[in-house]
């Protein structure tokens, strides 16, 4: 069920939300800025339209099931809070340090 990728192999992070126009759009710029130094691009989509070249999917916990169904071979990182959730800093640290990302 769970997928793993090493942070150093991540090139594209996709933020998925229900419609792809609200919460994922809200988070996109900040995550893109924090991951840019590591050569990682960030896109945002609707949860049912996750691109196959996504290395990691980021989504709110309530959508995790749909995200895993949509991208069954990709680690799905979940968060509870839009502002200041530790999941974002943990993801950045894993990419920076080349640690495994499970989800």
């Amino acid at each position: 069920m769970s997928n793993t990728i090493n942070g150093s192999d991540v090139r594209k992070v996709v933020i998925a939300c229900d419609a792809g126009m609200g919460s994922s759009a809200l988070l996109k710029t900040q995550l893109a800025q924090s991951l840019k130094p590591y050569g990682v691009t960030v896109e945002h989509t609707a949860v049912n339209a996750i691109p196959i070249d996504a290395d990691v999917v980021v989504t709110q916990a309530g959508l995790a099931g749909r995200a895993r169904k949509s991208a069954p071979d990709t680690p799905v990182v979940t968060f509870q809070m839009f502002l200041g959730d530790p999941a974002f800093t943990k993801l950045e640290a894993a990419i920076r340090d080349g640690a495994d990302i499970d989800g």
Partner: peptide, 24 residues
């Protein structure tokens, strides 16, 4: 409908209600 699926509250007293992907 979108709000019923999952609430759009984002914190700090702010919510961002919007439509569904199908309603684009």
């Amino acid at each position: 409908e979108r709000e019923h699926t999952i609430a759009t509250y984002i914190g700090e007293g702010v919510a961002i209600p919007h439509g569904t992907n199908e309603a684009r």
